[in-house]
Design a protein around this nucleic acid. Structure first.
Length: 227
DNA sequence: CTGTGGATTTGCT
DNA sequence: GCAAATCCACAGG
């Protein structure tokens, strides 16, 4: 049983940035174009052996499952299940982490009910805690700007130490998971909606969502919503 | 500030 | 074989 004084030894940082419970599975059991804007402002946390790293989600993209009409030709799932994309066809709330261009990783969250493979790609975070470790993971000096750490889908994976082998298929809604997405009460943000980045099909679909004018959103000033 | 090209692994045709 | 939901270094304005 804890004494009063022991209870008060909780560090202020651990309280203020303490993630509540992870978002429940039901949060993710709707189509990705609806989940995506709701994820803005939520906090992604990785409790790794190197320490706890967390960042606020400031930019995402929705990718639609093959059941959609018309189907989304830019989605990895658009030709049906394969060994790579299998987790997307399972229940909502699981991490889909894949290798890109041989050297980087990208992380998605699976959406919708089992059998429907919609997902949301996490494209940028605002670093909240574990910044020193993030800089080490990125091979940058401790003085590096926040947006150098986590503005970009592969940058954020590198900063948090996320890999396909270790993290693909993890349940993000489990209280015991090392990888979680939580709501810390951040207010509903002003959302910028644009076409998706880095794709060659369906280039004009408005499925990229970002916090307007946030400095940790990837790309140029225009991509961040500045006039 | 913008634009260009190379790195390097994986999954699928 | 080849294309890929990227990043970085470097060139030029």
């Amino acid at each position: 049983m804890l004494s009063q004084s022991q209870k008060r030894k909780i560090r202020p940082e651990a309280v203020s940035s303490a993630p509540g419970r992870p978002l429940p599975r039901a949060f993710f059991e709707v189509p990705p174009e609806r989940v995506a804007p709701l994820l803005l402002g939520k906090v992604l946390t990785h409790n790794s052996s190197l320490g706890r790293m967390a960042g606020r989600i400031v930019e995402v993209e929705a990718y639609l499952g093959p059941h959609n009409i018309p189907p989304d030709p830019a989605a990895h799932s658009h030709r049906g299940p394969t060994p790579r994309n299998l987790v997307l066809f399972g229940p909502a709330g699981y991490a889909y982490v894949y290798t890109i261009y041989g050297r980087y990783f990208c992380m998605n969250v699976g959406c919708e009910i089992e059998g429907r493979a919609g997902c949301v790609l996490l494209r940028a975070l605002e670093p909240i805690s574990g910044l020193d470790q993030m800089a080490r993971n990125r091979g940058l000096p401790r003085s590096a700007a926040a947006r150098e750490l986590t503005a970009g889908p592969s940058r954020l994976c590198q900063a948090l130490g996320l890999t396909r082998i270790a993290h693909n298929g993890l349940d993000l809604t489990s209280a015991s998971s090392v990888l979680q997405i939580c709501d810390d009460g951040y207010p509903a943000p002003e959302v910028l909606i644009t076409p998706r980045i880095g794709i060659h099909e369906a280039v004009d679909w408005p499925l990229r969502f970002a916090l307007a004018r946030h400095h940790c959103v990837s790309g140029s000033r225009a991509m961040r919503g500045h006039s």
